[in-house]
Structures are given as structure tokens and as C-alpha cells.
Design a protein around this nucleic acid. Structure first.
Lengths: 210, 210
DNA sequence: TGTACATCAGTGAACGCGCGTTCACTGATGTAC
DNA sequence: TGTACATCAGTGAACGCGCGTTCACTGATGTAC
């Protein structure tokens, strides 16, 4: 019996314990199911089992709740990418290439599993703070590291490294968005990853070891 | 005095003339200003100067109106890209390269001028029909032609042509989306176009003539 | 040219709903003595 | 250990609003004779 089993059940005590967190979790659940445009503060409160006005003890208004949700989602996406990269062992050109590929793949898989969460993050529902200053975005930094590692192992040339982070991010993000909106078939995603690797000039020797 | 001057003025005759078209035009105007999530059927009717129920003579429900809007926006984006390409004269490698660049630039400029229209098209507010079947999307076909032309003039190699349309579309679209959502600086866009050209291997000779 | 009438394109009132936010409040909790 | 009290975390009723959709209707239009 998980601790989450009681999530929607009536509270046993008057005080909730961690209402702020519960509200964000519930909001994520509802966005996942209904889409960001349909998210309502009242529905979130009801889902948690609390009166609508209780929300105002933790968020000044609905926008603040949405910002909190977005913040948490960016953290979850980052954690997910990080663990995908860490699952790759080794310190070689081949490993570097696998890490790079894992980064790109996990980004897509995250979005494809829950398109509505991705829409909230990048659909203009919140002012993005992650990535706004890419220098301080941990996910962006992780992409940079992966590219640096490819370079360090000689899997790509120095000139291919230039501007590669924004280029790769744009391509991965664009393919993801187009696919989840039905404008591109999901099968195209692996082709896109291939094209990225080709365009960076990842040595076929490295790729062949796959 | 343009014919549009009377758009929001009270109608002179009882019958409107072309209410269906007026509703779509007005909806586009409101989406541009307020964003797709805030679009309401009542506001559109009020803007045109008609009762809310009049809308139901032309659209079965609000979703149908939105679909009509999306359809029109895709047509406008296509027309805009087409005219950008046609503005390039000549039949040379250099011209082919300029056309290609014009395609990518106009896509971004369209979105950057009116982010809310772009959001409606690709933010999950409507089921996309353009591009869903890329084979029959005129904008996609135009991109294919541009790539074919580059190949025909020897500006790119045959192997770079493979899957290039989805690759280029993803990159252009992704950069556009990230920039209008504030996740990437607008200045990055030209770098992205450069990276695309580099990755396709557009001959520097062709690029130098710029 | 005038009239009857069918068709068309609108009106406007009403429906029930869910929304974000406010306010005065009360029950629960923990701490000081 | 017991009690008074301040603080904290909720309640619940109410506000005014705008929404999508429905319905019976009426005014405008054009056509047939």
C-alpha cells in the first residue's frame, strides 16, 4: 500500500501536512489528464480535498500555482534526463555517443508519454524561467557536457561543436513538438536523431560500435 | 478609407453578407491579441456585431470555429512563405540557397510577429490536418522543392538530401517555438539557420557569394 | 407591377455551469508559565 | 501536568462574471405568379 493511496481520500486530520506540495502534485495530475487550458484552481482544491480558498494560503493566485507546477515539471524532466544519461556506463567515444543519444531520446519520451505536461511547459501558459537564461539551466548544462564529452573523445570535430547546443536543442524540441501535435509521425524521431548525429559528423566508426 | 474600417462598426443591413468569413477574421484578431486559451465564441460574435447564437448558423460549435481559424492560419503562413521564396530571383546555386534561407526565415518571422497565432496552430488547440499528412501539405512540399533545387544545383550532396525535410522543419520549428516562449534568445535564430546550412554541407563557395 | 409566401439570416432571452477571488469565521495546534 | 492564549491552517458562503449552447422568434430577402 503506497503512501499515495490516501491522496484523494478524505484527510484524517484537520491540518493537511504539506498542502502546497499536494496542490502541485494534484495540478500536475489534472493537467496530464485534461490539458493545461482546462486546469482550474477549484478542481485542484477539490481533488486534494480542500476548500478553494485554502489554496490562497500557499499561492497568491492561480498563475502562481501554474508557475509552481511548471517549475516542478522542469525539475522532473531534468531528473529524468539525468538518470537516462547515468544509466550509460563507460568513458569512451562510444559511451559519449550513447549518452548523447539518451539525452535526446529521453526528452522526446517524456513529452510523448504526457503531451499535456509538455504543452504546459512550452505552450505559453507560464513564463519560462528555465532556459530563459540557458547558462543556468541544468538541463542545458547537461547537453553542453555531453557535447564536450563527444569532443573530448574525438567523436566530433571542434568546428562541429560550435553552437551545437542550441542547434541540437532546437531540433530535438521541434521534432518532439511536431510529433506530439500530430504534424509528424512518431517514427520520424529516430531519423531526426540520426540526422543530428550525421550533421555533427559523429564518426561512423563510433556509430558502428552501437 | 479601407473596407475594414467598418469591421467593428454596426452593420448597415440586417444581413451581414459574409458572416462566416467575418467570424474567422475576428477570431484571428482576438487570438492574436489575447491568446488561444482566451478565445470565446461570445467575444467573437460581439466583435463582429452579431448575437452569439448567430454563430451557430455557420459553425456547429466552438471547436469548429477554432478549426476554421487554424485552417486559415496555415493558409496564411503558406502564402507568406511562398511570397518570400518568390521574391528571390534567379536560377543558380546562390538563388537556391537564398530561397532556402527565405523559407526558414519567414517561418520564424511569422511566428515572432504573432506568437499567439503560432500557439493556436501548434499548441494542441486544434487537431492539425496540415502536416499530419506531410505529403499533402503545400508548405512541406515547398520545403522539399527548395531542397531539391539545392541538390540540382550541386549546392548540397545527395546523401545530405536524405530526410532533410523533416530534419530542417524540426530545427526551424523548434528554434521558433523556443524563442517565442522565451527559452532561447531571438538572436540565436540566425545561428540556427547557419548551423542548418553547415550541417547540410552547403558549399561555402555558395554561401560566400551571399 | 404588385402581392403572397417560402426561405434565409439573424435576434434575444434564458439555461445551467464553473470559474477566480474575497471575507469573516472557526477548529486545531503548540508554547509559555 | 494543566491551562490560557497566540498562531496557524483550514472552512464555507458569497460575489460577480463570462462562458457555450438552446430555443422560439422575427425581420429581411427573393421568387413565382
Amino acid at each position: 500500500m503506497s503512501i499515495n493511496a490516501a491522496k484523494s481520500a478524505p484527510r484524517s486530520s484537520y491540518h493537511h501536512g504539506d498542502l502546497q506540495w499536494a496542490l502541485i502534485e494534484s495540478a500536475i495530475k489534472l493537467v496530464r489528464k485534461e490539458g493545461p487550458a482546462r486546469l482550474s484552481l477549484r478542481a485542484v482544491a477539490a481533488d486534494v480535498g480542500v476548500s478553494p480558498s485554502a489554496v490562497y494560503h500557499y499561492f497568491p493566485d492561480k498563475d502562481a500555482l501554474i508557475t509552481g507546477v511548471a517549475h516542478e515539471l522542469f525539475a522532473q524532466l531534468f531528473a529524468m534526463q539525468q538518470s537516462a544519461v547515468q544509466r550509460v556506463n563507460g568513458n569512451s567515444a562510444k559511451a559519449a555517443r550513447e549518452k548523447f543519444r539518451a539525452l535526446g531520446r529521453s526528452y522526446f519520451e517524456w513529452a510523448h508519454r504526457d503531451p499535456n505536461l509538455f504543452r504546459l511547459m512550452f505552450g505559453g501558459f507560464c513564463a519560462i524561467e528555465h532556459g530563459k537564461d540557458p547558462e543556468h539551466d541544468p538541463a542545458f548544462a547537461m547537453l553542453q557536457s555531453a557535447l564536450d564529452e563527444l569532443l573530448a573523445h574525438g567523436a566530433i570535430e571542434k568546428k562541429a561543436r560550435k553552437d551545437a547546443e542550441i542547434f541540437v536543442w532546437a531540433t530535438v524540441h521541434g521534432a518532439t513538438n511536431l510529433i506530439i501535435e500530430g504534424a509528424m509521425p512518431a517514427a520520424a524521431y529516430e531519423l531526426i536523431l540520426d540526422s543530428i548525429e550525421t550533421s555533427l559528423g559523429i564518426k561512423s566508426a563510433v556509430r558502428a560500435v552501437k
